[in-house]
């Protein structure tokens, strides 16, 4: 499989603090990559650098064959980013909110409207399309956020804590949606999450990041093998994660 995201020695410092240290990451086209790590480990900073929204102090990144520092706009055309705690304009309803994002992507008119309807149905907000976003529940907001990300038909999805604060049912629905998008549209997904159970369920490979360093990368089976020997199958991702975490 081709590599779609690659970083070489990617480093980001804020003054004296180092948020990301010498990150070498490879994500292959068409996979779901689970990005794990405690709060403040540098996951979001990495995502921002991959999008060209933050400048790396050192090192390079390549996303879809492009350098995010020089070609930020082209990268952002191909990559959909759902930030943690995504916000909405309170006075807009779901359709208006999507229309604004569509216009920022250069989609207007009847084509955009049709696409918006399809997306609202896809994320299950077809009924609520006329409601103001201020009245949306956390789960609805998250689904609307996903719809906004999908408007540009991205090749790659960056999802930062998409299931944070969702009820179990909502979380499962969202995880299923991500899996469907990956299978049917072949989207590469970079998923950062604390919910290890969900990550284990859908990820092809995972990376564990602690204190700005990527300390492990690979399929869940191979990580289990590394830590617990060959009879790995019964270990959950949670146990593997804790093992790595304790070692640091």
């Amino acid at each position: 499989m081709d590599t779609i995201i690659e970083t070489v020695n990617l480093t980001r410092r804020y003054g004296r603090q180092t948020a990301v240290t010498g990150l070498n990451l490879q994500v292959k086209k068409g996979e779901i990559f689970g990005f794990l790590g405690p709060n403040g480990a540098g996951k979001t900073t990495t995502l921002l650098m991959l999008l060209g929204l933050s400048r790396p102090t050192e090192g390079t990144a390549t996303v879809c064959g492009l350098d995010p520092v020089r070609m930020a706009r082209e990268v952002k055309r191909l990559v959909g980013y759902l930030p943690e705690n995504v916000g909405f304009y309170r006075e807009m309803d779901a359709v208006q909110s999507l229309e604004y994002v569509a216009s920022l992507n250069g989609f207007e008119g009847a084509g955009a409207r049709k696409k918006i309807e399809e997306l609202l149905d896809l994320v299950g907000l077809g009924e609520e399309s006329g409601k103001k976003t201020a009245a949306f529940s956390r789960g609805m907001k998250q689904r609307l956020g996903v719809a906004e990300v999908l408007i540009k038909d991205p090749q790659v999805l960056f999802l930062d804590e998409p299931t944070l604060g969702l009820d179990p049912e909502g979380a499962v629905q969202l995880i299923n949606l991500i899996q469907t998008l990956n299978r049917e549209k072949g989207m590469t997904v970079l998923l950062s999450s604390h919910n290890l159970h969900q990550v284990q369920k859908i990820s092809h490979r995972v990376g564990i990041m602690i204190d700005g360093k990527l300390i492990a990368e690979g399929s869940i089976d191979s990580l289990a093998e590394e830590k617990f020997g060959l009879d790995q199958k019964e270990y959950s991702l949670e146990e593997i994660y804790m093992k790595y975490f304790q070692e640091v």
């Binding site: 706009r73 952002k76 930030p83 705690n85 994002v101 992507n105």
Partner: peptide, 17 residues
């Protein structure tokens, strides 16, 4: 205001300068 309500990051992660 956009920063506080979390819309700024969403807008600048769209393909615009």
């Amino acid at each position: 205001r956009e920063r506080a309500q979390g819309t700024l990051i969403k807008v600048i992660s769209q393909p615009i300068y």
